[in-house]
Design a protein around this nucleic acid. Structure first.
Length: 390
DNA sequence: AACATGAGCAACCGCAATCCC
DNA sequence: AGGGATTGCGGTTGCTCATGT
């Protein structure tokens, strides 16, 4: 535990990498793999610490990195995921598989954050800056409920992200292991955490706080830049779309989006149930949530659902009815939760004044985006099976 | 042309989680 | 179980380049 004794810094080079150093590092990793980063620099003939080498590799030299401008779809994904996950850049990065967390973090800090601020949206809370004017009645209650949903979704997405990471590492060995063992067994010597549970695969992020932001993004920023959103999914690639774990125990909730399966995590907060749905190594992941904002909130979310007479059971029932029903049910739950649903598809700064329209007319910004999200869901449902997004 | 300022981005730092003996 | 070693992650720094004055 404790601080890692970083490499002996004496005589080690810092600062920008030269092409020669890059070449050495590349050549070594191509031939030997990176193995122990600590030992790598000496073997590769580099006057760098292992940490620096690892960073250079993961953020720059790795062959599967896409560089250059972020696409509209990538921007939207980042915003949406940031609304759900906060500054969990690595988790966000797993949904933009060719981007590094560092790159996404930089892009957020230098571009998106400022742009949102310009649009009158708090980049931290993803709410309109005058959201504080919301009255203290049902709206705030709705907002609280949605906040819990957001936390739930946050936990789900993070679990999914971990699953994606793991699946990449062990995609080849998994089948063999599963043939001998019904559970997931850790086989990697690297830092691994196993897939957690019946995890959503290929699921579209569900509405949350990001609703307002995305709508405003579309209505405001995109309009101003003349960009259209005709191609959600465009070059966006979600690694989750390629994964299925059907060999797992039957999921608590299973549905599909078009031809794509979607499995949901059970977040029922009863004491015994967690063992049923969470494989052993998954518990390690959930420790994180316990330490941070995870399982307790997830459980409180569950109880909150019950308060709303929206139990996981009812969710399960509804999602089993049909594919579309599944998504629409949850979406409608979110969207119908607002007292006043102005179905204005417009957004942007003008809408900002209306969303928090000061008059307290009952409109909230979650409810203003039904059309937007329905369009997203329609795209989801209608996207071709080989769509890179789902 | 010279300087100031700001944006963008690569890289570093240090904490925390996890691995492994 | 305990502790050192390793890795992952997020915040921050500092360099480079573009733009403005």
């Amino acid at each position: 535990m404790g601080r890692s004794p970083c490499c002996d810094k004496v005589g080690l080079k810092k600062g920008p990498w030269t092409p020669e150093e890059d070449q050495k590092l590349l050549a070594y990793i191509e031939e030997h793999g990176h193995g122990s980063w600590r030992a790598l620099p000496a073997k590769a003939g580099l006057q760098r610490c292992g940490k620096s080498c690892r960073l250079r590799w993961t953020n720059y030299l790795r062959p599967d990195i896409k560089r250059g401008k972020f696409s509209l779809q990538e921007e939207q994904t980042i915003i949406q995921l940031h609304a759900l996950l906060g500054n969990r850049w690595s988790a966000i990065a797993t949904h933009l598989p060719k981007r590094t967390d560092n790159e996404i973090k930089n892009y957020w800090n230098t571009h998106l954050k400022k742009r949102l601020a310009k649009m009158g949206i708090d980049p931290v809370t993803h709410k309109p800056k005058n959201d504080a004017l919301l009255s203290n009645d049902g709206q705030s209650k709705n907002a609280a409920n949605l906040s819990h949903m957001s936390q739930w979704e946050s936990a789900r997405l993070e679990a999914e992200a971990r699953l994606v990471r793991e699946s990449k590492l062990r995609s080849h060995s998994l089948q063999h292991q599963l043939s001998n063992n019904s559970g997931f067994a850790s086989s990697s010597s690297g830092s691994t955490s196993a897939p957690i549970m019946n995890t959503p695969v290929g699921s579209a992020p569900l509405p949350s706080r990001s609703l307002y932001v995305l709508n405003a993004w579309e209505g405001g920023w995109l309009r101003s830049t003349g960009q259209s959103n005709g191609g959600i999914g465009g070059d966006l690639e979600s690694p989750t779309s390629t994964l299925t774990f059907s060999e797992n125990a039957p999921p608590i909730m299973t549905t599909g989006l078009g031809e794509h399966s979607m499995q949901m995590i059970e977040f029922v907060g009863t004491s015994g149930s967690s063992e049923a749905g969470i494989v052993k190594e998954g518990k390690r992941d959930w420790k994180n949530y316990e330490h941070k904002d995870g399982i307790e909130n997830s459980m409180s979310f569950t109880s909150n659902l019950r308060d709303m007479t929206w139990t996981p059971e009812s969710f399960r029932t509804s999602v089993q009815v049909g594919n579309v029903m599944a998504e629409e049910g949850f979406t409608n739950l979110l969207l119908n939760n607002s007292d006043d649903r102005r179905l204005s598809a417009g957004g942007g700064e003008s809408d900002n004044g209306g969303g928090g329209d000061g008059s307290g007319s009952g409109s909230d910004y979650y409810g203003d985006n039904k059309i937007y999200w329905n369009s997203i869901l329609n795209l989801v449902n209608s996207s071709p099976p080989d769509s890179p997004m789902f």
